[in-house]
Design a protein around this nucleic acid. Structure first.
Length: 310
DNA sequence: TTCCGACAGTGGGGTCGCAAT
DNA sequence: ATTGCGACCCCACTATCGGAA
């Protein structure tokens, strides 16, 4: 069951609000003999990737039963914030010993239950399932129960962004657990945006026209620092309009003074265009995560574009 | 008729693993 | 030893089409 992104922030007595954690989605099954299997959203086996979670689940028998299927998020922390970047150090590993040897501590935040003691509980109301879940397991690290609040969705969202969380998930209290994306689960995502200077572009591929992505950066003193590519957020007309501007500014050499630009099929332009870019966060390597184009800005000089803090 | 949901296709950062260089 | 590539994770977004409203 997946959540639908929305711009609407609200409170409603028929909805509950949970923290949105930045990690990896994980479905866990435990059979009567205590054997546990962890599965990714694409049904890949992750039991070897997070052996301590499988172990904990095997031992965490609550008051209400033994075999079960639960849903949650595997996360790693960087300070107080959940960090997908840190978790990535374990993502590809399938050998339990190697996974443990990374030293990256992981936690399993469980927020839903699908089956318990041979019963399919997916059609029970969400709030009821949460109560069932609470009794079905014992929650000791690395297992954690995802708490919820029933009021002040807007305030929860504001506080989440303030804390550096990814956002808030709103869930309809009475909703069953269904397959696929549902409007009974909504994502309030914290968004960041800033202006960036366009310094180049890449070739389009396949059926794409105009260009593939823009190469963008910001000024640090007199140096234009590369900050990554932006390849989504354009419709057909915008692709051509922006491409015309790029052709007008064509240059032979890279304007970037810092940051290695990877990939072939790269073309440079004089750094004069300023684009408004939305994204989720800066990566450790100083790149934009989940970048998307929001428009060109004509009211700001390229030379004044700097990296905004945080 | 209009709107919505699902899908395919394009684009991003980052990591690991493996083959080619 | 280095580089390139695909397969995974996390996505955002546009275009399209068929069925629901």
């Amino acid at each position: 069951m997946l959540a639908t992104l929305t711009e609407d922030r609200f409170s409603d007595p028929d909805w509950i609000f949970e923290r949105k954690l930045d990690g990896v989605r994980c479905l866990a099954r435990r059979d009567r003999r205590g054997r546990v299997q962890l599965h990714s959203r694409n049904d890949k086996d992750m039991s070897g990737t997070y052996p301590e979670i499988a172990e904990a689940l095997s031992a965490a028998v609550g008051s209400a039963g033994t075999d079960l299927v639960v849903d949650g998020e595997v996360v790693a922390f960087e300070g107080r914030r959940t960090s997908f970047e840190r978790l990535q150090g374990r993502l590809g590993l399938t050998d339990p010993d190697e996974a443990r040897a990374t030293g990256i501590a992981v936690f399993y935040y469980v927020f839903d239950i699908l089956h318990l003691d041979g019963h399919d509980v997916r059609r029970l109301p969400n709030l009821t399932r949460k109560r069932v879940l609470r009794d079905a397991l014992t929650f000791d690290d690395p297992l954690r129960y995802v708490t919820h609040r029933r009021t002040a969705g807007e305030e929860a969202f504001r506080a989440a962004c303030e804390r550096g969380d990814e956002g808030v998930i709103a869930k309809r209290s009475a909703a069953p657990y269904t397959g696929g994306r549902s409007k009974d689960w909504l994502k309030f995502k914290c968004v960041r945006d800033q202006e960036l200077v366009v310094g180049g572009w890449t070739n389009p591929r396949g059926s794409r026209s105009g260009f593939g992505a823009l190469l963008v950066g910001y000024y640090d003193s007199d140096t234009l620092v590369y900050a990554g590519k932006v390849g989504t957020g354009f419709d057909g007309r915008l692709l051509h309009a922006v491409k015309d501007e790029l052709d007008r500014l064509a240059a032979d050499d890279s304007p970037f003074g810092r940051g290695r630009v990877t990939g072939k099929d790269v073309h440079w332009v004089r750094p004069e265009l300023v684009a408004q870019i939305a994204f989720t966060e800066w990566t450790r390597d100083g790149r934009l995560r989940h970048p998307r184009f929001q428009g060109l800005r004509t009211d700001k000089a390229a030379r004044d574009v700097v990296r905004e803090q945080r």
